[in-house]
Design a protein around this nucleic acid. Sequence first.
DNA 1: ACACTTTCATAGTGGTCAATACAGAATAGC
DNA 2: GCTATTCTGTATTGACCACTATGAAAGTGT
Lengths: 179, 179
Amino acid sequence: MRLFWRHGYEATSIADLTRTMGISPPSLYTAFGDKRSLFREAVHRYLGGVAAVVQTIDRAETARDAARDLLTAAALGDTGEDTPPGCLLASSIVSSSESAEDVREELAAIRRAIEAALKERIERDVRAGVLPADFDADMMAGLVFAVVQGMSTQAKDGACRDKLLKIVDGAMLGWPTQQ
Amino acid sequence: MRLFWRHGYEATSIADLTRTMGISPPSLYTAFGDKRSLFREAVHRYLGGVAAVVQTIDRAETARDAARDLLTAAALGDTGEDTPPGCLLASSIVSSSESAEDVREELAAIRRAIEAALKERIERDVRAGVLPADFDADMMAGLVFAVVQGMSTQAKDGACRDKLLKIVDGAMLGWPTQQ
DNA sequence: ACACTTTCATAGTGGTCAATACAGAATAGC
DNA sequence: GCTATTCTGTATTGACCACTATGAAAGTGT
């Protein structure tokens, strides 16, 4: 997983993977099918399942908490001491060859699904009066995920954890103050 | 340039380039040296030079204008009708193999340079009293560039222009109201 | 102890990569 | 008209890609 995380999907070769995992290519293929399936497995382990992420969003105290939790988790995950910089989901396939386009689209679908869950969580708070009626769920969910994506690249560019946590604070400035 | 823009640096092959440009490999190599130099040339044409971008930031009326202009230009550029979705600078090398790591670092340096220029522009406005004394330049410049990066990925994921322009508005909510 | 199944690594498969050697065409100089 | 020189396209280079066929080694049941 670390290799995909560090170098992305296409730049990670089967030979790299077998060398690191200490197994031979046929073992890898009988265990995982093909490179694509192995990558899917890595993404699943990374996220702990899309459903789990969506559930965490739904069960947050408020939409604001959900947004801040997502951003903070991303900032911390992007700058873990024992893990590669950046986010596997955000950075492992951004631009791809046509042969990997469908893998890219799978990741994009996951990103959209999580963003949609946050948007619905925001709309729920708007309906409940927790957030103002003119609070734009589409805008704020989009902003949160743009920032998640952007922080991943910044981490790869060398940004430190404090920098990313500042960005999280900056991204939350548009939310109404608690009171 | 369009090929690099659409598929990224590593996923674009010399064969793709020569086919599209209508020239043969030796012509390309005598004209540009190698793939790396050709890519550098493409980035230069895309940005119109880093110095020009920095100058635009410096010459903006206010730091706020500079930030909004950057974000808006990115949102429009990411969703041009006649150009590939996303941003060449932001998306053409995010994760790379070790052999392309130095090209990636070159792009990262450009991104950092532009962000640093915006940060300094903000600090100038803080010193001049245009922005409050506690306005965090590092935070807001970081936020702007995280959003620029994130919008590029969202555009590649299929986001439309209106969505990105909304995100721009969201990213600007943290700035003090004009008056 | 022996036949049989399963496991796994070596050694390749065809294909594509960035980059170039070389041969033929076109142009210039006289 | 003829040689010399500069281009340009084809074909090739060695390296690496995802993936697999084959054969050796290790168990396992009797």
